[in-house]
Simulated assay, not measured.
Amino acid sequence: MRTTAASVLAAVLVLCGLLQPIPRLANAEPDLQSAGHPAADLKLTREDILTRAKSWIDERVPYSQDAKHTNQYGTYRQDCSGYVSMAWGLKTARWTGDIMQVATRIDKKNLLPGDSLWVHSSAHQHMALFIRWADAAKTQAVVWEEYRSGTVASQRTWSAERTAGFTAIRYRNVVEGDAKTCAAVSLDHPRYPELAPAATGDLVKAAQCLLTGAGFPTGANGPTGTFDATTAEAAKQFQASVGLPSLGKVDSHTWTALLARGTTPQVQDGASGDAVLRLQRALNAALDAGLEHDGRFGPNTTAAVKRYQSAQGLTSDGIVGAKTWAALQAGK
């Protein structure tokens, strides 16, 4: 009877999302690259996080550890951690066992909307988005969550006892402040086609943010996604600053120079980090290389570097040093 009772309890916990099969979720496959799915973990304001999270509540997405839901924000697993991963704009859906790779612990008294309440132990595994406190004493949390089988994404108020059993965590890429910033604009795109005045869309936002970051503002209202006269003038000024023709449009040379901006450490096979990510973007702009924007310098990146170096008359060794960076940052 004890064995039977334990089995029943375990089954209930799995259904509730409180006990997840560790081997299956620990190696969760990357999510489908659907329209709108991030190519890299996004930097989001709290407003952005809540807007994304509310989409599943409005769509009444049912809980499931196996199914995935797709909307304008991408494709994610329909359980508690998949829901938080979607709200936080993660490239790959995390689970309770590895969510701390993108989050940090905070004091519960410092919880803000869009943070998370999380627990991961052998008996209890769950997480939810914190929305607000239900009481002045800050003991009862109001959360948005995917809870268990038979329910849909919804708002719930936790008891003080339940709230006490969770740890407060914060997404490392959350950006505090006005949503009219470049914080939530992705610079990662499969291709970087030419942009001319009157163009619109996410690529225009990316170009506007890159131009602003280079010291050539494109307007007081942040990235509008419309290639207007101010953006054209900013492009001309940037082009002149790096020795490119002042065309007033963003061509492959301008994209390459903008995307390569930043520090110029020597990087080669085995390297990783922001410099490699900038390199991959710039090579995709310069060569249409088709590199994944993962910040990891592997065989494909090495091959693209050699191809670029050869085209520029540089030593084709696959090592990105001062000369290769200089060529990229000049838009060659």
Results as ranks from 00 to 15, higher is better:
A198S: 14
M100S: 02
G270A: 12
C80Q: 04
G219T: 08
A260T: 08
G219Q: 06
G215N: 03
L247T: 15
Q78A: 12
V276C: 02
A5L: 13
G331N: 03
P190A: 14
L258P: 01
G273A: 08
R132S: 07
G17D: 01
Y192E: 08
L44P: 14
G225C: 08
T163Y: 02
K306H: 04
V276T: 11
G273E: 08
G243L: 12
A327S: 13
E145T: 13
R105D: 08
T315G: 02
Q239K: 11
W158V: 07
A179Q: 10
A303D: 10
G215K: 11
Q65V: 14
P299R: 14
S81V: 12
T3W: 07
V267T: 10
K108N: 02
V12T: 10
I131Y: 02
Y192I: 12
L244C: 06
T218W: 00
L42H: 04
T231Y: 03
E292H: 06
A282M: 09
V320N: 00
N110I: 06
S241T: 13
D66R: 15
L187S: 07
L44W: 02
Q329C: 06
A304Q: 11
P197W: 07
K138R: 15
G74L: 07
K109C: 02
Q33F: 00
T157S: 00
Y308C: 03
N71Y: 03
Q20S: 11
L15W: 10
G114F: 01
L211I: 11
H124T: 12
T218A: 05
T254M: 04
E145H: 13
L314Q: 12
G17V: 13
Q266C: 03
L277E: 09
D41V: 11
W133R: 09
T301I: 08
N284R: 11
P62N: 11
D41A: 03
H253R: 15
Q78D: 06
M1S: 13
G114C: 07
E29V: 14
M1G: 14
Y192H: 05
Y308S: 06
Q237H: 09
S7C: 10
